[in-house]
């Protein structure tokens, strides 16, 4: 890895409460630009919560309170002049269950362009081009180019998940957040998504939450281990699995608890 990585996401003293329950405790993390960073840890450790902080979508889930700062590409996303719409446009998310919208494949891909269109309707050619480009980028174009007007929810799960990634791309996001994107998929599907992650890496900063330690090991450049709302260790993936600094990390990756 080159030493010239910029920082895509950095948090300072980030605390988060759901009501009176503190889900994140003093998180200070710097996630590098253009690489794949995985978030691991046992259930309830706050990894999904942390992921959802990065586009502030947490705030849509009810009684959430945060303190501290989160800087994305140098800008504090809690600044008063931040538009959540613009933020979420640049920081897309992929979910555990593929969640294509109940419309056609084509409409799913252009959904973002339609809702962000500034003046009038976007031009048909522009949309067609975006669909071809995005589906090509995720490797679906060949399979789906003749089925663009089929219902997206009728696709195979792997295709649905790739479509969910393709849906983000026309908006030219800088960061893609993935919340256990392979947990609903079989081995082939998981391989497909991981290969796609490798292909997208470099152009996009990818942060992936995973339950699957083997996946974190295979598919990420850096790895963050969290426990009970705290960040325990953050280092290069190889180092974290081979030479964990913290005994808690060592015990977790050995499978003593989980």
């Amino acid at each position: 890895m080159s030493e010239m990585h910029h920082i895509a996401i950095s948090t300072r003293a980030l605390d988060l409460w759901y009501g009176s329950f503190q889900a994140l405790r003093n998180i200070n993390v710097s996630i590098k630009d253009g690489i794949i960073t995985s978030l691991i840890g046992p259930s309830g450790c706050g990894k999904t919560t942390l992921l959802r902080c990065f586009n502030r979508v947490n705030e849509r889930y009810g009684n959430v309170r945060t303190s501290g700062t989160i800087e994305l590409l140098g800008k504090n996303i809690y600044d008063p002049d931040i538009s959540l719409i613009e933020l979420r446009k640049s920081v897309g998310m992929v979910f555990q269950r593929p969640n294509p919208l109940p419309i056609s494949v084509y409409e799913n891909v252009v959904f973002g362009l339609r809702i962000h269109a500034t003046d009038g309707k976007p031009h048909r050619d522009e949309l067609d081009a975006a669909v071809e480009k995005s589906l090509t980028e995720v490797g679906l174009w060949k399979d789906l180019k003749d089925r663009l007007h089929d219902r997206a929810v009728g696709l195979q799960l792997e295709q649905q998940q790739k479509l969910c990634i393709a849906r983000l791309l026309p908006l030219k996001p800088e960061i893609i957040l993935m919340d256990e994107p392979c947990s609903a998929l079989d081995v082939e599907g998981t391989r497909g998504i991981e290969e796609l992650m490798f292909a997208l890496k470099g152009r996009y900063t990818i942060v992936i939450v995973t339950h699957n330690m083997a996946q974190a090991r295979r598919a990420s450049d850096e790895c963050i281990f969290m426990l009970l709302g705290e960040l325990i260790e953050h280092t290069r993936t190889g180092d974290l699995f081979l030479n964990p600094k913290n005994p808690k990390t060592a015990e977790y990756i050995e499978g003593r608890y989980g």
Binding site: V57, L84, K89, P100, G112, I115, R167, L168
Partner: peptide, 11 residues
């Protein structure tokens, strides 16, 4: 999940 999908592209 439909709402989440929308929110996360900035709708």
């Amino acid at each position: 999940s439909f709402r989440e999908a929308c929110w996360n592209v900035g709708a």
